[in-house]
């Protein structure tokens, strides 16, 4: 067993005490987000892992299998912290304060052997710097997961399928259509077609800022998929500039029913279903007494 590991092992208790003190003394400690016992449990676990890992003799390469437990504990801590709303500074401080704690113990123990002290200090510094890098990595990963999830949620809510009439669905698309979005749109639309037994779907693209060949391809795909299910698809809300780009790009939409406005599309849908909308007796104003 090497020196570093021995030192860690023998002085585990002391280090943990120091570490806890450092953490508690830090103003950035978020006792609103984590309880002292929880913090102590986490810290103890991590320190144990570190002692076991260094016992292998490897004190440099934190990607080696001996460090898997340590890395795992650290990743766990950083990810939970990222979700709980800790700042990266607070998460980083957690590991860096351990460095301080170990250094304190080292200084005490090796005060009469400066050379040895220096060696151990630099080993510990290097090791813990590496570990704190890992916390940053995983912290950011944790945040990224949050963003991804939100992205999915936005995709989910931004594609409502509206039942406008018996057998007629409308789907206003707002924002850019990329392939991920198209898949969500397609899935929602097709599921809704099955659920409601609708035979006509109106895709309104007045909220789509631009239609390039890729977006057009996505639209064509959606229309084809609807047809395979046995329903018809009408695309509405084609603005003048969109019509222009479509023609300039040479995109062929001639096989797809297109209408300028949602109202026109609805009219077409009505006539396809044999529904007639008529004006009845004139509207005479609201009767407030009733």
């Amino acid at each position: 067993m090497n020196n570093t590991a021995q030192l860690l092992q023998n002085n585990k208790k002391k280090i943990l005490e120091n570490w806890m003190q450092n953490q508690l003394a830090d103003e950035a400690l978020r006792d609103d987000l984590i309880s002292n016992e929880e913090l102590r449990r986490q810290s103890d676990e991590l320190l144990n892992g570190l002692a076991t890992a260094t016992a292998s003799g490897n004190v440099e390469n934190t990607y080696a299998p001996e460090y898997e437990t340590v890395t795992e504990i650290l990743s766990d801590i950083s990810i939970t912290r990222a979700r709980q709303g800790f700042t990266p500074r607070e998460t980083g401080m957690y590991v860096l304060s351990l460095k301080q704690a170990i250094n304190q113990v080292l200084e005490e123990k090796l005060s009469d052997q400066p050379e040895q002290l220096y060696k151990e200090l630099s080993i510990i510094n290097k090791l813990l710097d590496n570990l704190s890098m890992i916390t940053f990595d995983t912290y950011i990963k944790g945040r990224e997961e949050v963003i991804l999830r939100q992205n999915d949620e936005i995709n989910e809510i931004s594609t409502p399928v509206i039942r406008v009439w018996e057998g007629i669905l409308a789907l206003p698309i707002i924002g850019t259509l990329d392939s991920a979005r198209t898949q969500v749109v397609m899935e929602n639309l097709l599921l809704e077609i099955v659920n409601t037994g609708s035979s006509i779907a109106i895709l309104d693209i007045s909220g789509v800022p631009a239609v390039d060949s890729l977006v057009a391809q996505h639209l064509i795909k959606t229309v084809s998929a609807t047809r395979l299910m046995g329903a018809e698809c009408i695309i509405s809300g084609i603005r003048a500039e969109i019509a222009q780009t479509i023609v300039h790009l040479g995109i062929d939409l001639s096989n797809i029913k297109t209408k300028a406005t949602l109202a026109n599309a609805l009219q077409l849908a009505f006539s396809m279903r044999g529904v007639e909308v008529k004006k009845t007796a004139r509207y005479t104003g609201l009767n407030l007494n009733k």
Binding site: M186, L191, I193, S224, A225, M229
Partner: peptide
């Protein structure tokens, strides 16, 4: 051809197969 599952329809379209000449219906 009736009752195609949505997932199947999406997959066919991605595959590049639109079943030309085949009539489809919901049920």
């Amino acid at each position: 051809v009736v009752g195609m599952q949505p997932a199947v329809a999406i997959t066919l379209v991605e595959l590049g197969l639109t079943l030309q000449g085949v009539y489809t219906a919901l049920d």
